[in-house]
Nucleic acid binder design. Structure first.
Length: 499
RNA sequence: GCCCCCAUCGUCUAGGGGACCAGGACGCAGCCCUUUCAAGGCUAAAACGCGAGUUCGAAUCUCGCUGGGGGCACCA
């Protein structure tokens, strides 16, 4: 016997227009789509809303797909892989929309409109001048349908408009906000089909969602104002309504409005971006971004915050979506990224961080990298921190700032002497490892009446060339006795020159 | 201007009439750990926008106000 409460597989779709770069907001929508589909054993569909060819941006599709792949949001049907309900590109579905438009007209829910864009613009300006609402003035609304059809047959330029009832109201249901009722008189006779014959979003998306058997339409709240129109179209066609879910928008970090081009450029200067395509070179993990994005507008129990994709697939729920807009918080992204970096296995992290060393010109051998990785794992926020903190492992020689070699509260001469003693001790060891070197060095510090901070600080700069580094003796162990001695020798010379 | 939506720490959020002198997280500050930096641990400061109702009781329900956001294309 089947379980009555069994979850119905959801068919979700991410339907961006290839008119720009894939950003955080889109990624989150796609993520929610993906999670719902995976959780219920349904399908996640990628559809391209490219009905406006004028706005088509070359390369946008490629970046979109690359971004989705990178985030791990694999689609089951799409323009590149096909599927049972294709084509998945609106520009290839023109005839389908035409047919629906025809039926709408036939049923009296739409009509041909012959108004020119020029006249429409004039009307609009007039309305603005008179402080009226800008809306279609209804010139063609009352035209005899047969007359209209005749003019169309004669090749007259026309669009198709939805014939909005001028009485009554409509109640639509948004899963996040509940019922929303609006007066039809506040709704316009929106254009459904352009004069070039291609449908606009309002028609095309509704048709596609229907034909592609989409069960849940997840789209941002920008679509809420036209939601009633969409419901009118669906109901006019007698279709079953999918569940509509409108998560909130993302606001810029200040919380004042949506992210603009200017702010995006600004963020990039600080090493942040809202474009998924920028995130990888910036050193972010898809895991970190997914975790972060999932929690902007959704929560699990109010306290659990670390989620992997499998966790999310298991725990995501539409029921915990938050209707209010969320300001982007990049420092929290850093936090999640660090969390996920620390949760990676050493080989995995090594593999991921390697290109960042190479991008800085380092020649990296895997054996050394594998030893270095554990030392930097909990010191990294983004992968590009790797070469910054650990580049010295892959240098032939380091070049410390001479002043930085001076120990705290010490003179150059004292520092030099301490380094000399350390050199002798290290030279006397068969090899330098944490186990062989640390204890004797601590004793040396005591002998010299120096704090470990003083002595180790001098050596740290000498050996790594940096004031801040991974733990000293573990680092020495990887660098090897010969190079360590060489670097300490150089440091002594540098200090002597200062004295 | 018109329409729609939203409203808890600076930010992301938990909360859905009594369990809330409001919990978690980021960030910030302090302390602990410590060879630096991190990581980790502990502590602190920090919020129910305002006003009316309803109720024995409201962060939670209703209304108004205010504030914020979104939308008003032959874009999506």
């Amino acid at each position: 016997m089947t379980n009555m409460t069994q979850i119905k597989p959801a068919r979700t779709r991410f339907a961006p227009s290839p008119t720009g770069r894939t950003h955080l907001g889109g990624a989150r929508t796609a993520l929610y789509d993906y999670l719902l589909a995976r959780q219920t054993g349904g399908q996640f569909i990628l559809r391209l809303e490219d009905s406006d060819r004028k706005r088509y941006v070359p390369g946008a599709e490629e970046e979109l797909m690359r971004s989705l792949h990178w985030l791990g949001l694999e689609w089951d049907e799409g323009p590149d892989i096909g599927g049972p309900f294709g084509p998945y590109r609106q520009s290839e579905r023109k005839d389908i929309y035409q047919e629906v438009a025809r039926q709408l007209i036939e049923r009296g829910h739409a009509y041909y409109c012959f108004c020119t864009p020029e006249r429409l613009e004039k009307v609009r300006q007039e309305q603005i001048k008179n402080k009226q609402n800008t809306r279609y003035d209804g010139t063609c609304r009352g035209l005899d349908p047969e007359d209209g059809a005749r003019r169309v047959a004669n090749g007259e330029r026309h669009v198709v408009r939805f014939k909005m009832p001028n009485q009554g109201s409509i109640t639509v249901h948004d899963y996040v906000r509940g019922d929303i009722t609006v007066e039809n008189s506040n709704l316009d006779d929106m254009i459904l089909v352009r004069s070039d014959g291609l449908a606009l979003y309002h028609l095309a998306a509704m048709v596609d969602d229907q034909l592609m058997k989409i069960t849940h339409v997840i789209r941002t709240v920008e679509w809420l104002p036209t939601f009633p129109l969409h419901a009118h179209i669906i109901r006019a066609m007698g279709w079953e309504e999918p569940i509509f879910v409108h998560p909130s928008v993302f606001l810029k970090p200040s919380g004042k409005g949506k992210m603009s081009k200017r702010e995006s450029a600004e963020a990039l200067k600080d090493g942040y971006s809202i474009f998924i395509g920028d995130m990888e070179p910036l050193g972010y993990l898809p895991e970190g971004i997914v975790n972060w994005a999932a929690l902007m507008g959704w929560s699990y129990d109010g306290s659990t915050e670390f989620f992997t994709m499998p966790d999310l697939i298991e725990k995501f729920s539409l029921d915990h979506l938050n209707p209010s807009p969320a300001a982007i918080n990049f420092s929290k992204l850093d936090h999640f990224n660090g969390l996920h970096i620390r949760s990676l296995t050493t080989p995995d992290l090594a593999r991921r961080v390697k290109p960042f060393f190479e991008a800085q010109g380092y020649t990296v051998d895997d054996v050394t990298l594998l030893r270095v990785t554990p030392l930097i794992q909990e010191r990294m926020v983004t992968l590009d921190d790797g070469p910054v903190t650990a580049g010295f492992f892959f240098k032939e020689e380091v070049s410390p700032q001479p002043e930085e070699l001076i120990g705290k509260d010490m003179s150059p001469a004292e520092s030099s002497q301490a380094a000399q003693k350390a050199y002798e001790l290290l030279a006397s060891l068969p090899d330098i490892t944490k186990d062989t070197a640390e204890e004797p060095m601590r004793q040396l510090a005591e002998q010299l009446e120096l704090s470990t901070g003083q002595l180790f600080g001098i050596l740290r700069v000498a050996v790594t060339g940096q004031k801040v580094s991974p733990p000293l003796f573990e680092s020495m162990e990887i660098i090897g006795k010969d190079k360590v001695l060489e670097r300490v020798r150089t440091a002594i010379d540098l200090l002597n020159a200062l004295a």
